[in-house]
Every structure is written in structure tokens, then in C-alpha cells.
Nucleic acid binder design. Structure first.
Lengths: 142, 142
DNA sequence: CCTGTCGCAACTGATTCTGTTACAACAGGG
DNA sequence: CCCTGTTGTAACAGAATCAGTTGCGACAGG
């Protein structure tokens, strides 16, 4: 199975905010407006941006002047930051039920695979960290 | 979401075969025996090994002398080969429904993200290709 | 013909994801 | 002090996928 599309939705939302927020007097955009570009439901956007807020990438206001805002310059937000904020699970899953502990392979293999998987995941994240939201927006508009 | 445990099941099966097959006169093991080490159902093993057979990593015989056998030395089978054989999907999914084509971000962002994701996936596979089934078995038995 | 295993289809229950509805909480404007 | 528009969040639906299971035909040797 693939990793869910949450990273894509989050990256899209951030790129759109990087484009639009500077044009607004208060720098705020609503989940409805973002949802219109991503073509999904505002609640999906609020859920995803909620994870990004927990990671410190955006913040939100309630009330009459409600909306969302970037807390960092788009040049300083990488796709690795986005991925980390919305995908807490390890990239590759181990056994769904523990293997046979009476077998030396079943007993010994989980940590070995875990370590190899973790190296692979770190390598993937390193590649993602080479691309910023500003890069994504620039290439998107080109 | 995480990538499914199929890679883990496949790697476990191959490591177990690398350990056990040499001890058998005909070099064959059954899906039942592998399932006992992985602690799952033989049909799950046959499904997974079926993908590995399609990738040329193992083969199988039917009839009275039925069973499975490695077609390559474990030193030449990497975790990238295993992953490739059992996980056809791209690592990170794009939008589940196409974004708004009337928005420049919605129109332009999918290929930009796709390319960044593909670089990340290649980097992950490169790391996986540094580990062979023989490595996994050796570290598992240590 | 008998036996043991593969091959494969079909089904189940659990899980997860995306999308949706509903509504309270909130903050400012009038 | 109410009105408004948005966030925050719970709850639910439908679809997809996964791991596991059952059943049975296909097959190849003894």
C-alpha cells in the first residue's frame, strides 16, 4: 500500500497559502478557500492543517477574523517537515502478528528489518528535505 | 499509512529459505513450513511468494515433490528486489481526487510533487539495495 | 489410483482513508 | 448584547485494502 495522500494535501495547502496569503491584508486564508483549490472538504483541510499547526508550520485564529497563516517563510519549510507532521507511522510495517519465537529467524529478524527500513526511511526523508514549499510553488507556477 | 507488511513477510520467507533449503536433499520447502516461521496462513505465503516468482527470485514445483526454491544466491537478492516485487504502487500517493484545474496551483502541482516523491522513493530503494537476504540472515542469527 | 502440495477464487472481519454532516466554541462588529 | 463567519471536533458513511481463512481443482510423482 502507498502512504496516504495527506502529505500531498498538506503540501498543496502550504503552496497555495504561500501564493495567496501575501496578497491578503491580514495574511489569512480560510479552510474553505484552500479546500476549493485542493478540491476537497474544508474539514479535511482543517484536519490536515491541524497536524501542521501541531508541528508549528502554521497557526490559526478563531472568531470574526478567523483563518490560517504560515508561521515560517515558505523557503524554510521542506517536504520532509510536511511529511513528518502528517505521517507519524514508520514507512514500512513489520509483521502484522509476531512471528514464531521458537524459530531463530522468527525470533531474530524483526529488529534487523526494522533497522534496514529505518535507514531507508531516513534516506527518503533526506531527499524530501531538499525540496521546500517555495520550490514547489515556483515549479508549479512555471 | 504505512506500506503493508508484504515486504516483511517476503524478506522473512527468503531469509528462512536461505537458512533451510541448503539442508534439504531436494532444496525444497513448502508454504506450510514457511508459514510456521512467519506465523501466518500458508495461502498468505503462497500469495507473497507468487509475486517473488513473477520477479524471478524463487520458483515452485507442483505435484508430489512440490515446494519452493530460491533461484538466486541469497547474497545477490537485495531488499530493494523484494520491495519491488511485492509493492507495485508508488510510495507516496498524490491527490485522491484531482485538484481544481481552474487554480494554477491545482493545475500545476501534481507533476511537481510526483517528481519530488519519485526522487525520495529512488533514494529509499537505493538504501534497501545495500542490504541482501544473506545480510539479513547473518544479522538475524547473530 | 493415491497423496501431498500448489494455484486460485471467494469470502470475512478489521482497519484506514476520504468525505460529509452537525454543532459547539470563539472573537470581533455593529 | 446579539449576529456573523470561521475554527474545532465528534460522529458517521462508503470505499479500499489488508491479513486471514475456506474450499477445491490442478498437478506430478509413487
Amino acid at each position: 500500500m502507498s502512504v496516504s495522500s495527506r502529505t500531498t494535501v498538506a503540501a498543496h495547502a502550504l503552496a497555495w497559502m504561500a501564493l495567496v496569503c501575501p496578497k491578503r491584508p491580514d495574511g489569512l486564508v480560510t479552510s474553505d478557500q484552500i479546500a476549493d483549490s485542493v478540491n476537497t472538504n474544508p474539514v479535511v483541510i482543517r484536519r490536515t492543517l491541524g497536524s501542521l499547526r501541531a508541528a508549528g508550520l502554521v497557526d490559526s485564529q478563531r472568531g470574526q477574523r478567523a483563518g490560517w497563516r504560515l508561521t515560517r517563510a515558505p523557503e524554510t519549510i521542506t517536504l520532509a517537515d510536511v511529511y513528518l507532521a502528517v505521517e507519524p507511522e514508520p514507512l514500512i510495517a513489520l509483521h502484522s502478528t509476531p512471528p514464531n519465537q521458537l524459530c531463530p529467524v522468527g525470533r531474530g529478524i524483526p529488529p534487523v528489518l526494522r533497522e534496514a527500513y529505518d535507514r531507508a526511511e531516513r534516506s527518503m526523508k533526506a531527499e524530501l528535505s531538499a525540496v521546500t514549499v517555495a520550490d514547489v510553488l515556483r515549479e508549479t507556477m512555471a
